[in-house]
Structures are given as structure tokens and as C-alpha cells.
Design a protein around this nucleic acid. Structure first.
Lengths: 339, 339
DNA sequence: TTGTATGCGTTATCAT
DNA sequence: ATGATAACGCATACAA
């Protein structure tokens, strides 16, 4: 058996509660006995039993991070992983542990619901994709602290969330291309249906509008989840009467397909066509030519989420709050100024 | 306050212990009362309090996964993340939770030591890089179940670990190149000092030996952690009297630099020089030409680790065991047969 | 400043 | 088949 608070109480000749007070840094203790207790703790190699602590305090000092990985791809997502690193860092600094759980649908009770109902964690961070009305109801009914990673489709104003400022991202990318002298900008999307795609397109439209360019609907192409389709999309674009002189790609894989299609068509980048992408990972800088991108500091994303959640846990009245993390531009050869 | 075992005991008119038995699936209970209890549990929306359970049972049903991320790169490491996904999957299937902690050195007590000493977890998975004699001693002294991810430098035979079969990997890669008709194979390493690099080189040597090829020491170049140096390494190789006709690269970034250097020197791949790499991620298939690689199923790596750990936890006498996960070849254009 | 007593929610031992 | 009771290790309200 491990050494408990009682053991060291007996050794020093005080009561367990006195030891407990010392362990918890209660100041109303004579320096004399405190020192004796510390000495005994060290000598007997005492460490508080967190299980007992948790029960007595009714809290675990652990927060749950929910993942919605259908397959292992989500876990390989560098974008997401930097956020996780940030979350772990902030939690550790604040004395919290990080519990990660994949939200597989179980027969009766989902893993997330279990975490909450069985009080395994003090709060949760949810991806917007796993936000359901049922879950929100459960959380709110139990006054359970939570924060959402990504703008949710429902309950936007009644929840706290952190997201990338995708509208700004789309705007930034389009504006950069315009500034570089490209006036007819196509946009190849991964999946029109997602909220972040919608926001990016909105930003793109805004930039075009503000610069007096008309938005050519043929220029917006949806890969519908199949990024390989971007190859054919380029062919489509090149068969239009008014061809674009720049392509904005929703991610690195789409950009890769675009570059390949352009190369196969003997169209040079950026001379005949500028190419730009979102996200710096996994290989924008290793493309030929290296890609200019609009990226986001996902570390800050996770950091913000974790910080907000801790505040919520420690202050029940902490107001809901929505934060947008600003995007940034990384300028490389694929968008060199048009001559 | 949440509803407890007592509440439903009172409601049904039985003792708390009876309810506890039902919750735990004890069979020596009349079907009649069992049904009544189940009904009450449902009606009152009862969920067992894991904090109390943990204390009573002396276990948490949680395992700790230790990360040794100095920066956010480790977290972005797709290689590692697939293992994490596998670990989480296996744990969830077995009713365990996953706690992730970065092993930052703290003043007095490292986060990992805390997890163990405060009984926050029932077992730990450690990366070999964070295996120290001190930690091993602590674990062994406490009979604490653990398993190491990657062959450790110390206590190889007294611990359980799972690793990629890097010797096989090096052998497989070299043999593939030989089979394709390439007889003078260079090897550009990321960092000679690591145990996995040593094993890969050993496998490479073995394949050459077995095929009667002599190992040319000038052909083995160490980037000493700086992958950009691979660009210069190619120049070096091309200035040798006996030039190689194939280059084996320790990772994707080195391969990228090698391809770039070859392109700048107007050496075509694979006609004049075959190029091969380790690891399929993050962009081997998107290189020009697409790279042949020796890859490893890191899902299996994590799966094996988690499975072994659970066995250790559930059976204190479970013997130590070392497992090597076999590598596999992915054949692409960069090593097309030499004519 | 310190000790006593009680509770946190559950499990387990020993009864009956 | 079920109930009473103690125990898990710690925290805290109340006393002294």
C-alpha cells in the first residue's frame, strides 16, 4: 500500500487534517509543524492520491477533447494536431490533464456523453462537427463547461467557440491575387457544403466586389469531397471563353492536382496562371513552384480554446464568447507579380 | 446534486448494495428486483459516478500516453498520429480512456512521474526518447504497467516495447533497388545518432553484402539533423569518382532536396538516378516523379502497444515482449527498372 | 493553530 | 437473494 495522509500524520504526531492542510498550502499552520510535515512527506515519499482527491472535491482537473475521426486521417491532420499541442500546453500550465476521446456512436450512450455524465472530466472541447442539439441540451442542462472548435451550425450565439476567420482568409487570398495583378480568379473548393467553405467564398466575393471585379460563377468549382477532381476542373476552366488568370485552391492536394493539370497543358505558373492555396501544410513549400498560401496559426486556435474553457470552469458566470483567429499570408513564387 | 445509488435504492426500497450489484451485473439478484432497479435507474437518469468508483476500486481505467514534443512538430508528425489513433481505438474498445501528456521537465517532478505516483492512470505508453533509468526504476519499483513505443537505448530486455523493423526496412529498400538494377546505392541519413538510423543502415549493409556489392563508405551521408543539407550531399555524391546510380533517403524532406538537386544538375529520375525514401507521408506520392518508399503501418504499431499494455494491466504476470512491425514497399516511378 | 467528525459515492465483506 | 457496515484517501465545517 502506498503511504497516505494518515501515515505521515501518525509519524509526525498530528492529525490527518493538519497534514491535509499543509498539502493544500493552507497558511494557518505553524511554521514548525509545517516543516516537520514536509520533512516526513519527503522522507516517506508521499504523493497525494488523486482518486481520493477527486472524489472529495467533486472534480478531476481533467478536460476532455473530443475527436470525430471516422478514420485515421483526422489524426494525421497536421492542422488539427497543432491545436491539440496548444491545448495540451495550456492545460498543463494550468494543472489540468488532457483526455482524448473519439466520438464513435455507441448503442446507448456516446463516449462523450459518458465522460460528462460520469463526471470523468471538468469540461470538454468539441469539434463543431460533433455538435448536435441533443449534446448541447445535455451540456446546458448540466451546466457543463464546454467550448467548440469551429463555428457550429446551430446555437451559434448561445455557445462559446473559436474558429479560423475564413471570411478574412478568402478575402486575403483574393486581394493578394488582385494586388499581384491577377484579375480573373477561379476558386476550386473541396466541398461547398461546409461552413468554412461558404465563409471563404464570401470573403473572396467581397474582395472582388470591393475591387470592382465581377464574380464569374463558372469560376467557382466544387470538388464535392474528391480532390482529384481538381485536375478536370482546370481543364474545364481552360475551355471557358473568358479564361481565368489565377486559381485559388481550397487545400494542398487540390493545388497539387491543379499544378499537374497546368503542367500537362503546358501552362506555366505563375506567368500564365497564378496558383494559390489555403493551408501551409503538408507540402505547399515543396511544390513546384512553391505555393503562396493563406495559412492560420492553429496553435493560437487551440490556445484560445483551452484558455477560454479554463476560465469557464473556474468562473461559472463566464460569458459566452466567439473568437476568430486571423489568417496570414505566406508569399511564394506561385503568385509572383504579373508583368 | 446528481442522482446516486442511494437515491434509487430509496426509490425502489432496497439497500444501496443491491443497487450496486445490479449496476455491476452481479447475477445473484432476483430478476424481479433487478428489473425494478433498472427501471428506476432509467427513470431517474442515473449514471455511476466514476470518481467514487475509481476510489473504491483503486483504478482509473485510464492509460497515459506520453509525448516528448519539444515543439509542435512532433504533434504534426503524421507517422506518430496514426499510432495515437490506433491506441485510442483499442483503448475505447476495452473500456479505457486515453490521457495524453507532454513530458516537459518540471522543477521537482515530471508530469509523467506525477501521473504514476498520484495514481491518475493504470498504465503508461512511453516513447523511447523519454525513457530514462530514473523513470524505469520508478516504474519497476511500483510494479507499474508500461510499454515503450520504439526500441529503447537501455533495458531492452527487461521492458516491453514495440518498434518498426527498421533493419528490415533498410534491407527491403536496398534489395528493391538492387532488384530494379541499381547497383551503387547511396544512403542519405537524417541523423546517424538515432537507433533507428543505425538499424536501417545495418539492413542496407546486409542487403548489399548478400548481393555481393561492396559498401562504399562515401555513399553514406549524415545530414546531422539538417535535412536541407541533402541538397549539398547530392553534389558531393556526383563529384565522386564512382558515382552512385541510386539514392536512398531517410525521409520525405531529404528526398525533396535530393530531387531538387538532381533536377538542378539535369540528372533525370529514375533514368540516370533512382530515388527512394522512407515513409509515405507527408508527400511522397506528390513528388515528381512519385516516390517509391518503404513505409510502415503505424496503426499496427499503436494497436500492438495498446493491446500489450492492456494485457499487462489485466495480468500482472504478463511477460515482457518485444515486437517488430514489418515494413512494406510502395513501388512508384522513382525506382522504375533500369534499362 | 490544531483536532474531531462527517461526507464524497461506490464497492466489498460479512452477515442473515 | 439481500442488508448492514466498513473502507477507499482526502477535504472541510465545526469545535476547541
Amino acid at each position: 500500500m502506498a503511504v497516505t495522509i494518515k501515515d505521515i500524520a501518525k509519524k509526525v504526531g498530528v492529525s490527518p487534517s493538519t497534514v491535509s492542510r499543509v498539502v493544500n498550502g493552507n497558511t494557518l499552520i505553524s511554521k514548525e509543524t509545517r516543516d516537520k510535515i514536509f520533512a516526513a512527506m519527503k522522507e516517506m515519499d508521499y504523493h497525494p492520491n488523486s482518486l481520493a482527491r477527486n472524489l472529495a472535491n467533486g472534480s478531476t482537473h481533467t478536460i476532455g477533447l473530443v475527436i470525430d475521426a471516422q478514420d485515421d486521417n483526422t489524426f494525421s491532420n497536421a492542422f488539427f494536431n497543432r491545436s491539440v499541442y496548444a491545448i495540451e500546453t495550456v492545460l498543463q500550465q494550468n494543472g489540468y490533464n488532457l483526455l482524448i476521446t473519439n466520438d464513435r456512436e455507441d448503442k446507448n450512450c456516446s463516449p462523450v456523453e459518458k465522460l460528462i455524465l460520469e463526471k470523468r472530466v471538468d469540461g470538454v472541447i468539441l469539434p463543431s462537427s460533433s455538435v448536435t442539439q441533443k449534446l448541447i441540451n445535455l451540456l446546458q442542462k448540466n451546466d457543463f463547461p464546454f467550448i467548440i472548435l469551429g463555428e457550429p451550425e446551430i446555437e451559434k450565439d448561445e455557445t462559446s467557440w473559436v474558429d479560423v476567420d475564413n471570411l478574412l482568409g478568402g478575402e486575403m487570398a483574393a486581394k493578394h491575387l488582385l494586388d499581384q495583378g491577377y484579375g480573373s480568379i477561379a476558386f476550386i473548393l473541396e466541398n461547398q457544403a461546409t461552413i468554412f467553405a461558404r465563409n471563404r467564398v464570401q470573403g473572396y466575393r467581397k474582395a472582388l466586389d470591393e475591387n470592382g471585379c465581377k464574380v464569374h460563377t463558372d469560376y467557382i468549382i466544387d470538388c464535392k469531397g474528391n480532390c482529384e477532381a481538381a485536375y478536370g476542373a482546370v481543364r474545364e476552366l481552360m475551355s471557358l471563353q473568358e479564361k481565368p488568370d489565377a486559381v485559388l485552391c481550397a487545400n494542398n492536394v487540390i493545388a497539387y492536382q491543379v499544378l499537374r493539370a497546368l503542367r500537362d497543358s503546358l501552362i506555366s505558373v505563375p506567368e500564365d496562371m497564378a496558383v494559390m492555396s489555403f493551408d501551409n501544410y503538408p507540402f505547399a513549400e515543396y511544390m513546384d513552384p512553391p505555393l503562396s498560401v493563406v495559412d492560420v496559426d492553429t496553435f493560437r486556435l487551440g490556445e484560445q480554446a483551452a484558455t477560454d474553457l479554463i476560465k469557464k470552469i473556474q468562473n461559472a458566470n463566464y460569458e459566452n464568447k466567439q473568437t476568430m483567429i486571423a489568417t496570414e499570408l505566406i508569399f511564394r513564387e506561385s503568385t509572383k507579380r504579373k508583368k
